[in-house]
Design a protein around this nucleic acid. Structure first.
Length: 436
RNA sequence: GGAGAUAUGGCACAAUCUGGUACUGCAGCGGACUCGAAAUCCGUCGAGCCGUCGUAUGGCGGUGUGCGGGUUCAAAUCCCGCUAUCUCCUCCA
């Protein structure tokens, strides 16, 4: 949620900033007109309430003196009725303003590239392992035997998309045998790395209520993409960002504890409503996938540097796994709803000859904190909204996909990255797994 | 899932039956005493949010007794719905 006072006071600047975020011109003006109407009514109704309070005090006093107050009471009956009507109108206006404001995306930070979509994204840096020449390297020249990860997985018998579809539907899968072990190794490795970097490991609820979904900005605008629990006003989380960030909703955090960093593995559920037909095969786009998430609560002056730290925490996982990646800064038109600034880490997927998003790290500044009422006491002793950040660290399924493709061998086996071997009993290779 | 109880300022609690300025203590803040501190005494303060005025410390008004409604000139108090917590039962991993 944006600060209404800011929008009011900086009408022109804000209109431009929102336009960059893809908000239609005139939206802000309409909202502020409603807000103006609302504030005028507040002044009126509050004046009447002040009168009513005064009259009530007089009636109470008269009754204590055993005097008759029926005249004053019947007079106030009219006022009470008027107040009630005005309060109703005010509540409607209030709801309209809130609803409109709740649909406005966050305003981008000043150094975010301005543009309509992903074409305006800017590459920050690029990394590839030094020993890369000896491995599959579609960056230079893809060997003829290069296979996409889903073929590797199916050939090895470690990924079963068919039975996933049979039992659940399209975009669900079973990991089998070494596939399941590899997935588990990957997220254990990630959690351990983040813990070393100071993140507190959490296991969260994976079903949350509507107010939590509102708090992080998924609701009301993106309700259609959520897996709702039937009849319960609860939702299967689309990301652990929701329960992790809402952990402190409504709370005031001790300033000396900031920044606070959380990490959690969770399944993530997405309807992928707008993605029909895209990435239909493999681990790239599923209705349910595992993700290790990072969340930070920071003082406003620290949130920019914390975003860089978090992005590096995500990138470091890929470096330790020996997977090539690059980091891009999303343009104003490509950022998510709640973000003020976003770095995407994209991993190399050789079979598709592209970098694919594997982590998205965002600073939402006070946008989520305003919705959730998370504050701290600043140096002047005043309550101030904290800044919240979130990032994937990383999408586990996509990491497995990247490992399968980048570490595949001509004979159909896959070499296990060294850092994962301790998590797999020292195993060095994925061979064909027989199963039933 | 069933029964009962509870929800009031940072904490602990009173007022709820009988509607009318939300009591008191601790903590906080200021002061006195003291070389200083503790103890004691005096004073003061009750979140947050919204509106408005002001350059500002802030003033004024509204709201605020778990949440949402209702009755009333007026609701902590009466009525309806909900949520959370506790105890007992039931069920379980």
């Amino acid at each position: 949620m944006l600060d209404l006072k800011y929008l009011r006071k900086n009408k022109e600047t804000a209109a431009k900033q929102l336009q960059d975020r893809g908000v239609e011109t005139g939206t802000l003006e309409a909202l502020l007109a409603k807000d103006e109407e609302r504030r005028t009514l507040i002044a009126k109704v509050e004046e009447m309430k002040a009168k009513r309070n005064e009259a009530s005090d007089k009636i109470a006093f008269a009754k204590r003196q055993k005097e008759d107050a029926s005249e004053a009471i019947s007079e106030m009956q009219k006022v009470a009725k008027e107040i009630k009507e005005m309060d109703q109108t005010l509540a409607d206006l209030d709801a309209e303003v809130k609803e409109a404001a709740a649909h406005l995306p966050n305003i981008a930070e000043a150094d975010v590239p301005v543009g309509p979509d992903e074409s305006a994204n800017v590459e920050m840096r690029k990394w590839e392992p030094t020993d890369y020449e000896g491995r599959v390297h579609a960056l230079t020249e893809a060997p003829a035997w290069l296979k996409p990860h889903y073929e590797i997985g199916e050939d090895l018998g470690i990924l079963d998309f068919e039975r996933g579809a049979k039992v659940s539907g399209a975009r669900f899968l079973y990991y089998v045998g070494d596939g399941a072990r590899l997935e588990r190794a990957v997220y254990n490795f990630m959690l351990d790395e983040h813990r070393k970097e100071g993140y507190t490991e959490m296991i969260t609820p994976i079903v949350v209520n509507d107010s939590a979904m509102f708090g992080t900005g998924q609701y009301p605008k993106f309700k259609d993409d959520a897996y709702r629990v039937r009849d319960l006003d609860q939702t299967y989380i689309p990301t652990a960002e929701v329960p992790l960030t809402n952990y402190y909703s409504g709370e005031t955090l001790p300033a000396e504890d900031l920044p606070i960093s959380f990490t959690a593995l969770s399944p993530s559920f997405r309807k992928e409503a707008g993605a029909a037909g895209r990435d239909t095969r493999g681990l790239i786009r599923l209705h349910q996938f595992n993700k290790v998430e990072m969340v930070k609560f920071a003082k406003p002056e620290d949130s920019d540097s914390e975003l860089e730290i978090m992005t590096n925490n995500a990138a470091n996982i890929l470096e330790k796994l020996g997977l090539p990646y690059h980091i891009i800064t999303l343009s104003t038109g490509d950022m998510g709803f709640s973000a003020a600034k976003t770095h995407d880490v994209e991993v190399w997927i050789p079979a598709q000859n592209v970098y694919r998003e594997i982590s998205s790290c965002s600073n939402t500044r006070d946008f989520q904190a305003r919705r959730m009422h998370i504050t701290y006491r600043n140096d002047e002793g005043k309550l101030e909204l904290v800044h919240t950040l979130n990032g994937s660290g990383l999408a586990v399924g996509r990491t497995v996909a990247a490992i399968l493709e980048n570490y595949q061998n001509e004979d159909g086996t896959v070499t296990i990255p060294e850092v994962l071997r301790p998590y797999m009993g020292g195993q060095e290779k994925l061979n064909k797994t027989p199963h039933h």
